[in-house]
Design a protein around this nucleic acid. Sequence first.
DNA 1: GCAGTTACGCTACGGCCCGTAGCGAAAGCC
DNA 2: GGCTTTCGCTACGGGCCGTAGCGTAACTGC
Lengths: 236, 236
Amino acid sequence: MISLTEVCAGVSGPSVPSGMVAPMQSRTPPTPPAPRTGGRPRSATADAAILEATRQGLVELGWSKLTLGAVATRAGVAKTTLYRRWAGKSELVVDAVAELFDELELPDRGSLAADIENVVLQFAVLLGRPETKTALMAVVAESTTDEPLRARIRESIVDRQKRLVLAGRERAQRRGELPVEPDAVGAARTADLIFDVIAGAVVHRALVSAEPVDEEWARRFTLLLLGGLAAAAAQT
Amino acid sequence: MISLTEVCAGVSGPSVPSGMVAPMQSRTPPTPPAPRTGGRPRSATADAAILEATRQGLVELGWSKLTLGAVATRAGVAKTTLYRRWAGKSELVVDAVAELFDELELPDRGSLAADIENVVLQFAVLLGRPETKTALMAVVAESTTDEPLRARIRESIVDRQKRLVLAGRERAQRRGELPVEPDAVGAARTADLIFDVIAGAVVHRALVSAEPVDEEWARRFTLLLLGGLAAAAAQT
DNA sequence: GCAGTTACGCTACGGCCCGTAGCGAAAGCC
DNA sequence: GGCTTTCGCTACGGGCCGTAGCGTAACTGC
């Protein structure tokens, strides 16, 4: 497939110019086996089957009743194979749902308002799926007592969402809808704030309030956020 | 200690006029035993000990490693006693953390901005505690495949938060900072929206982004939200 | 005081799932 | 062909679940 060593080399700092819409490096396989010299290669088919079986299991059983034994059986794979690649249920599920977040895109709809509504509705679609519904909150809960897991979630899921926000902002700045903040630190904080507001509001609406994130809600939310952005910009 | 019978009597309808800042009916005991005629009463002491032991267990073990057997032992109670009152781990934990949300208050700070900052920081303090951190997301995740649990969370936790938002809005309207929306349906939707934005943003910042909800963040967030409210009000 | 009713502590149990160990066989690299 | 790594399979100890059954404790109503 792809040689990982070179892809992974020098991916430490989050020092990407930020703003580019270019796709992140494509999904990295689970638990890269140490030095990869000779020997029988891991079956990519098995990987795919396991992740798919995980998602199916999440849909039918939910997070808490999902067992790794059942996933292995459904995937047509031995349980030991599964444990060779993932440390536990959390890591596996993160990778399984992370694939769904790869579908996220942000086409240019011509205005900041349209872009925001679009991204909100995309989040909503993802969070409407039963797999993500039950998995996302569970792994985040788990990550509160598991720092490596949190890092994995951030890389695989959160940053993937954040890209959309950054891209949207850059476009809006090009259109003149948003000012270019000269202070890099302040700009980053603003971006973080906006990201937490958007993602947080959608997640809360969809999972906690458990009410639909439809077009009307997206419109009202966008109106609110745009007004806030205008006021915040004026404040500067 | 306390006679439970009278406390339990007539606590069925949630039909409070809604909007009052008066405290909700104080915590209802778990799984009210059916008709409550004669017989040995349940130990209120045991209830308190169990809930406290649950919180301690959450702090030390986290949600996933918390076992009901351990809780019972720590509380000095038989495991069977625990199962007589709560259907499972989720229900128990909801009740345990719900007590923490009773501490929420909303003193009048003189302006809408100050009130919002205050409520944000109060949410942040609660979400900063390790018990709530690990428990809240976990039970919400569980509730995606368990409707009764969702209802319990809503009553015990979410509505308790929402009260603060409603109270804050009412105060702001009295001060003239916010317009009184004549349309009841629209007003309710706006309130829901604002609640999801506030609670969602704070939760996302604290648990997903895992960065501090300090005074500076609260200030920036409040600025954003107030601007949005002004714009939304003008739109009407 | 005495029956009736309910909660309590304790013990014990079958059942499920976990995570690992130990094989022999398969599939690639040199 | 030898070396290396993965794979499927089986088996296992251990933990926790959730319940049943029992004798005892606490409180109510007659």
